[in-house]
């Protein structure tokens, strides 16, 4: 099949650019640790309230400026619905759903993940600026979806 010389140039440059995208993303994710949330931990979605750590959702201090936030998502809210941490804290959010699929997003950060019943998902972020961060559900979950939010206060 004959290709016009210009088309060869265009397709070669285009293909190389796409390959560069793949390499940049691959290095950033696999070598520098910027992986998207892909937790593999399973849980019985009907027994979330009896399964540790989600029987007692809340903030747990792991070390200096290092926290785990074990949270549950449900129609139409999160538990806990307010978290306070000191500035420059690193928080790992471990979240699971007690009912349907939810989202977990903190606008202005890269924290954004799907919360699927039967699975735990997690994301880690370091908060370097003080402020009141909105945690919101970005996956349609029912009649009160637009009200589903929580607050993270960084002091």
């Amino acid at each position: 099949m004959h290709l016009h010389r210009y088309e060869k140039i265009w397709l070669t440059v285009g293909l190389l650019t796409l390959i560069v995208f793949i390499i940049v993303l691959g290095i950033n994710a696999f070598a520098m640790g910027a992986q998207p949330p892909s937790d593999a931990q399973v849980i019985d979605p009907t027994k979330v309230s009896q399964t540790p750590p989600f029987d007692q959702p809340g903030l747990k201090q792991l070390g200096n400026n290092n926290y785990a936030a074990d949270m549950t998502a449900f129609v139409f809210g999160y538990a806990p619905n307010r978290i306070e941490i000191p500035v420059r804290s690193t928080v790992t959010f471990n979240v699971t759903s007690k009912d349907v699929v939810h989202g977990f997003e903190i606008p202005g950060t890269d924290v954004n993940m799907m919360i699927v019943p039967g699975l735990v998902n997690s994301a880690t972020h370091t908060f370097t600026k003080p402020g009141d961060y909105l945690i919101l559900c970005n996956e349609y979950c029912g009649a009160g979806h637009q009200l589903m939010a929580a607050h993270l206060v960084v002091k």
Binding site: H4, R5, Y6, I9, W10, V13, G14, T17
Partner: peptide
């Protein structure tokens, strides 16, 4: 034909 696709090449590169 060979010379008349300069505009095409320029266009796809602007897009790229």
């Amino acid at each position: 034909h060979a010379i008349s696709l300069r505009g095409t090449l320029a266009s796809v590169f602007i897009m790229g």
